[in-house]
Design a protein around this nucleic acid. Structure first.
Length: 105
DNA sequence: TAAATGACTTGAG
DNA sequence: CCTCAAGCCATTT
């Protein structure tokens, strides 16, 4: 894994996230696949966790395969509210219907 | 060089 | 629905 490879992967992840339509969400697995690295789930995770603070990427639209937010800490609630304001609904178990809101399910 | 870590996933109980 | 275990792989210690 060279510096360039890592940079390229990160850039692809950024590009994909930036392309998520309003009112849709995407899972880690989807991102990895779209970036051409289906097994790099952990790296997607790593990239997201180390997003630049001032990033304008809609990282709140990224959820886990169960349709739940994977964010830890207080940002969980913030993300949830943003999603709701974008038209995404949560069921009583705080889950999102991927069949309806998932991007390219 | 080896061990620990993480915004994950899938499957079993 | 929830918890646990194993698999995952670059980055950090």
């Amino acid at each position: 894994m060279t510096q360039d490879d890592r940079q390229t992967f990160a850039n692809q992840v950024y590009a994909i996230i930036a392309a998520i339509p309003v009112g849709k969400v995407i899972t880690y697995g989807q991102i990895a696949k779209m970036a051409g690295m289906p097994t790099y789930i952990r790296q997607v995770c790593f990239v997201l966790r180390h997003l630049p603070k001032g990033s304008k990427l809609p990282c709140h639209r990224i959820i886990n395969g169960q349709g739940r937010l994977s964010v830890t800490g207080d940002s969980y609630l913030k993300y949830k509210l943003k999603l709701i304001s974008e038209g995404i609904e949560f069921n009583q178990k705080d889950k999102i219907d991927l069949r309806k809101y998932g991007w390219y399910n």
